[in-house]
């Protein structure tokens, strides 16, 4: 766990964001909200990762920064794919919301 006290807000809010994102991803039928929720989850995770940079007492660890940057790139590509899919689905569904009820295969 983050030993330094000043990392705690990052860690805590990161976890909170993750849970919030998870909740939205699961419960909201609108696809755009789902995509955004995924990004919120991502941000939460990144914040937890960043809090790890404060390990120990010396210089901040640079590795998490690198990881987060890579993560953001990956998240952006994923978001792009998701949005592209959403756009393709838009005319089919007549909107960006998933139809109510259990989907058929």
């Amino acid at each position: 766990m983050a030993e330094s006290l000043h990392a705690w807000p990052f860690f805590g809010s990161g976890v909170l964001l993750f849970v919030l994102g998870l909740h939205a991803l699961v419960t909201r039928p609108h696809l755009l909200i789902k995509v955004l929720a995924f990004n919120v989850m991502g941000s939460g995770t990144f914040m937890v990762l960043l809090s790890a940079a404060a390990r120990g007492s010396g210089e901040p660890d640079p590795v998490p920064q690198a990881l987060v940057i890579t993560g953001i790139v990956v998240a952006v590509s994923a978001t792009a794919v998701a949005l592209a899919l959403m756009l393709r689905l838009y005319p089919i569904l007549g909107g960006a919301g998933l139809p109510p009820g259990p989907p058929e295969d």
């Binding site: 766990m1 990161g14 991502g42 939460g44 937890v48 990762l49 809090s51 790890a52 590795v63 998490p64």
Partner: peptide, 11 residues
């Protein structure tokens, strides 16, 4: 998974 990675790194 990534959250797990973060925790591992923290640890």
């Amino acid at each position: 998974y990534l959250m797990g990675v973060a925790l591992l790194y923290t640890q």
